[in-house]
C-alpha cells in the first residue's frame, strides 16, 4: 500500500478592488526611485573587432551588443526577435563561441572578436553553411535565418569539440552529428515559419562538406 502524499490546496485571494476604483497602476510595482547621481559616466568608449575590422564605439553603457551592431555599426543582419534571450535571432559568434547578443552589454566586449552573418559570407561568396541553407530552403521569412546560420556553424564546432548535450547518451564517448544531437543543440533558435526539417538537412550538408 502506497503512503499518501499529504498536501492541502492553497487558498486564493481577491486582489482587484471593486468597479471604478481609482488606481495608479503603471509604476507602483517597479523598484523605488533612485538617486540621480551615478558613481561614474553612463557612457563608455571601447573597441570591438567586428568581422575582422576594428571598430571604435562611444555609446551609452546600456547599449547591448545587438543594438551596437544594428543601430551603431548598421550591421542589421543580426536580428532582434525578442531582446530577452528567448528566440536566438540575435546569435553571433564572440571569440569563436555563439552567444545571444541581446543579453550582452557592448561595453563588456572591449577587444572581443565578433563575427556576424555579414562576416560569414556575401551573396557573391557564400559560406558553406549559407549555401546549405539556400540549397535546402532552410528558411521562409528569413528573419531568424542569420541566427540559425551562426548557431549552426557553432553547433558543428561544439560537436567536434565533444561538448555534450541534453540528448548525449554516453557522456564519455565521442559525440556524432546525429539528427537528435543537431536538433537539440539548435533548439535555442526558434523558427516560427517552421523550417526546422529543412535546416536539419542543411546542417547535415554542411557537416558532410567539412568531414
Amino acid at each position: 500500500m502506497s503512503p499518501p502524499i499529504r498536501f492541502e490546496m492553497r487558498r486564493r485571494t481577491f486582489l482587484v478592488g471593486t468597479a471604478s476604483a481609482v488606481v495608479a497602476a503603471n509604476i507602483p510595482w517597479r523598484a523605488s526611485a533612485q538617486p540621480t547621481s551615478l558613481a561614474g559616466p553612463d557612457r563608455s568608449t571601447f573597441t570591438l573587432v567586428v568581422n575582422g575590422e576594428t571598430r571604435e564605439l562611444a555609446v551609452d553603457n546600456r547599449t547591448t551588443l545587438l543594438d551596437a551592431l544594428r543601430e551603431h555599426l548598421e550591421l542589421t543582419g543580426t536580428k532582434k526577435g525578442c531582446d530577452h534571450g528567448q528566440c536566438g535571432a540575435c546569435t553571433v559568434h564572440v571569440n569563436g563561441e555563439r552567444i545571444n547578443s541581446c543579453l550582452s552589454l557592448a561595453v563588456m566586449h572591449q577587444g572581443d572578436e565578433v563575427t556576424t552573418i555579414e562576416g560569414l559570407g556575401t551573396p557573391q561568396q557564400l559560406d558553406p553553411m549559407q549555401q546549405a541553407f539556400f540549397d535546402h530552403d532552410g528558411f521562409q521569412c528569413g528573419y531568424c535565418t542569420p541566427g540559425q546560420i551562426c548557431s549552426a556553424k557553432a553547433v558543428l564546432q561544439e560537436i567536434r569539440d565533444n561538448v555534450p548535450s541534453h540528448v548525449t547518451k554516453d557522456l564519455t564517448a565521442r559525440i556524432e552529428a546525429t539528427d537528435e544531437e543537431i536538433r537539440e543543440r539548435m533548439s535555442g533558435n526558434i523558427c516560427r515559419c517552421g523550417a526546422y526539417a529543412n535546416i536539419l538537412e542543411a546542417i547535415h550538408q554542411a557537416a558532410g562538406e567539412q568531414a
Binding site: 534571450g85 555563439r98 552567444i99 545571444n100 553547433v155 561544439e158 555534450p164
Partner: peptide
Amino acid sequence: LAANERVRRDYGVLTRALMSGASGQLRNK
C-alpha cells in the same frame, strides 16, 4: 562546466542538469 572531463565522468548528474537548461548560446555566457 558541463563539458569538463571530470564533471562528465564523476558528477554526471551535473552535466545532465546543465545541458537540460536554456540554450547553447545562453550556456556559453
